[in-house]
Nucleic acid binder design. Structure first.
Lengths: 194, 194
DNA sequence: GTCTATATCCGGATAGAC
DNA sequence: GTCTATCCGGATATAGAC
């Protein structure tokens, strides 16, 4: 029942995540975080000895989130349409609204300039994301509320690429309309109601 | 009829383009180029006073290429299927083969850390790319060799996002199979022969 | 056109006091 | 847990000789 004492570590992680989505792993510095939090450079190093540690913690948290969603959906796969709308919602309310892009796309771009361990984490994140989408698509088709040709895993991969790309072009063009156009096109092809 | 004298400027540009696709605008330095070409740092600055100049020249060349292809296709739109196969071929033979990603995706990721002028160039590049794809898709549907719902411009945008994302995930997973899976899925949906 | 030399700045990281 | 102070390396960029 302690009063709302600052949890610096959590604040760092949260801010770093925003900065990462907006500017990439190499696009922010310990200085940026320190200044925003009103502490000094060295304080960040106390919580995350190296920037790589921070990067790993960051992706780890995202993986956790995806895994939790997968578990949730598998435990109660009654509404695949709502699940995919939530997926679209992420791009609307997170990416487009904050002019940022998704972590997989950012990490893919920075892949060759990022520590090895982060590369592995990024791969795992992409795998888990694909797994989640495949589960949703498979359930959707089985219940007759989605239509597509081919394997759910293949369609999930393609969808993931499309939406990741959509977030990027949306940001590039600074136009939420881009995202809406792609979502509308994809929805049409999956047989979802507009 | 001068002997094959080195055109340093062209070599710089060509090498910078490779480095950019592989590591991004911030991922390579004048040093990298200088060493690879066996000259000194300052020599690069002679040809491109600032890195921004180099970046602009680089994107400008890509735009030129896309524009040329658009002009070519518009002048002779008899084989849209070959045109789209060539588009897929770029991802196979350039991106996947060199473990790099396409410029639009790279620039979208680095967007907020790149000079203003480059942002504008990047937007124009994306627009022109979309225009080219829309022309191909429209011709393909008109000739009955491609099927899709909605406007060609919307389908073109979605396709561009899908393929850009596919290059990124292919690189992330270090797996050409990812690219082939996406191409196969897209081809199926467009009604192209496998 | 290319060189040497240098200026300037910035990012990550560490040591040791408080 | 946070501070001050400092080190190191790397990157862009410029001046002036050749």
């Amino acid at each position: 029942m302690r009063p709302a004492r600052r949890d610096t570590r959590a604040e760092i992680l949260s801010l770093a995540e925003q900065l990462f989505h907006a500017r990439g792993y190499h696009g922010f510095s310990y200085q940026d975080i320190a200044q925003a939090l009103g502490v000094k450079n060295a304080a960040i190093h106390y919580h995350f000895a190296s920037k790589e540690d921070l990067g790993l913690a960051l992706i780890g948290r995202l993986r956790e989130l995806v895994r939790k969603n997968l578990e949730l959906f598998r435990g109660n796969p009654i509404d695949p349409v709502a699940a995919i709308q939530a997926y679209f919602g992420y791009y609307r309310n997170h990416c487009a609204a904050t002019h940022s892009i998704c972590a997989v796309g950012m990490l893919a771009a920075e892949l060759s300039t990022v520590p090895d361990a982060m590369r592995l984490q990024a791969r795992a994140l992409a795998d888990e994301m694909r797994e989640l989408l495949a589960a949703i698509l498979e359930a959707g088709r089985a219940r007759g509320v989605m239509q597509f040709a081919g394997e759910p895993a293949a369609r999930a991969l393609s969808l993931m690429c499309t939406m990741g790309g959509a977030a990027q072009v949306t940001r590039l063009k600074d136009s939420p309309e881009v995202l809406e156009t792609v979502i509308a096109q994809v929805s049409r092809e999956l047989g979802l109601a507009a």
